[in-house]
């Protein structure tokens, strides 16, 4: 297992170079001149525009820009935003908030998704199963902005149970509502995946054996059926963590969460390569680590699977 983990960590090196190069190029290739937008449609003296371009190396060809970026990276300098802040500071401020939000959302979808999925699977075709199906449909078809707005309005304004937006410092309590909204769409996936796996596995031979051995129903379900049904669920959740961190733009907007999603979105719109590359690199790291954890979990969930 240790060599397996080490191998994975070594693989990070080419992944990192590949990702930064690709992302840097993509931002470079987006249409429009970032400096033209800085003046907000008002006049800008050409000398000022040129000075700004030079400051951000935008007057250099692509390879030079990328090389200069890598050079700074060696000394742990992630570059500057167009507002003159260190990208590392910006990410350091946004990352803890986003990490808390994503972990909460992941916990919500994992816990509720698996519980609902198990019951829906065990009672396939019954009222509970159909109710869960319709509820998850609702989550898929109704856009996040609607769900977010309605929850925010009802809980935050009408009932005053929670603050409608996240206050300074982003305390855990304020993040519950956004985490619920963020976790909802993926919840539909987790429920359906768990349900299907349960249905597949509950008629498996080993379940019959376990039941026949006289094991309690709970033990059969939790240890035998569930454990063997979790592989697709774990796979999904592992890949979802990163998406929750980088793709929470709508939810972050509704609840005014100063997180990574919005940071990334704004940086893309502005063509701020340094920020985009840094955020994406962090996300790649999250995906690689989550994937590693998932693979380790495979072996634990199903001992027949060998790590190579």
């Amino acid at each position: 297992m240790i060599t397996f983990t080490l191998k994975r960590i070594l693989q990070l090196i080419p992944v990192f170079f590949g990702a930064t190069l690709l992302v840097y190029f993509l931002v470079f290739a987006t249409p429009g001149d970032p400096i033209a937008a800085l003046s907000g449609g008002k006049p800008m003296s050409p000398a000022v525009a040129d000075a700004l371009r030079a400051q951000y190396n935008l007057d250099q060809p692509f390879w030079v820009q990328y090389f200069l970026y890598l050079k700074n990276l060696v000394s742990f300098d992630l570059g500057q935003t167009f507002s003159g802040q260190q990208v590392s500071d910006v990410i350091a401020r946004a990352m803890p908030v986003t990490a808390r939000l994503a972990v909460m959302a992941l916990a919500i979808e994992a816990v509720f998704g698996v519980i609902f999925g198990v019951f829906a699977g065990l009672k396939k075709g019954k009222l509970f199963d159909s109710t869960v199906l319709v509820a998850s449909l609702l989550v898929i078809a109704v856009p996040t902005f609607v769900l977010g707005f309605v929850l925010q309005f009802v809980v935050g304004v009408k009932l005053s149970w929670a603050k409608p937006t996240v206050s300074s410092g982003a305390p855990w309590g304020d993040l519950i509502l956004p985490a619920v909204v963020l976790g909802l769409v993926s919840l539909a996936y987790v429920i359906r995946l768990t349900r299907t796996s349960i249905i597949e596995n509950k008629s498996a031979d080993y379940v019959r054996t376990a039941t026949a051995k006289g094991l309690s129903r709970r033990r059969v379900v939790v240890v035998h059926i569930l454990r063997n049904s979790l592989i697709p669920v774990v796979t999904f959740l592992g890949a979802d963590l990163g998406s929750l961190m980088g793709g929470a733009i709508v939810t972050e907007g509704i609840f005014n969460v100063p997180g990574i999603g919005n940071l990334l979105y704004q940086a893309i719109l502005k063509g701020e390569s340094a920020t985009v590359v840094a955020v994406v690199s962090v996300l790649v790291l999250v995906f690689v680590i989550a994937n590693l954890v998932v693979d380790l979990l495979y072996a634990w969930l199903d001992p027949r699977i060998r790590l190579v």
Partner: peptide, 18 residues
């Protein structure tokens, strides 16, 4: 000055006296 990325969020805060 609270920084908002969306006026909708700010409006909801206003409604809640936040």
């Amino acid at each position: 000055f609270k920084i908002y990325n969306s006026f909708d969020a700010a409006y909801t805060d206003l409604q809640a006296d936040n």
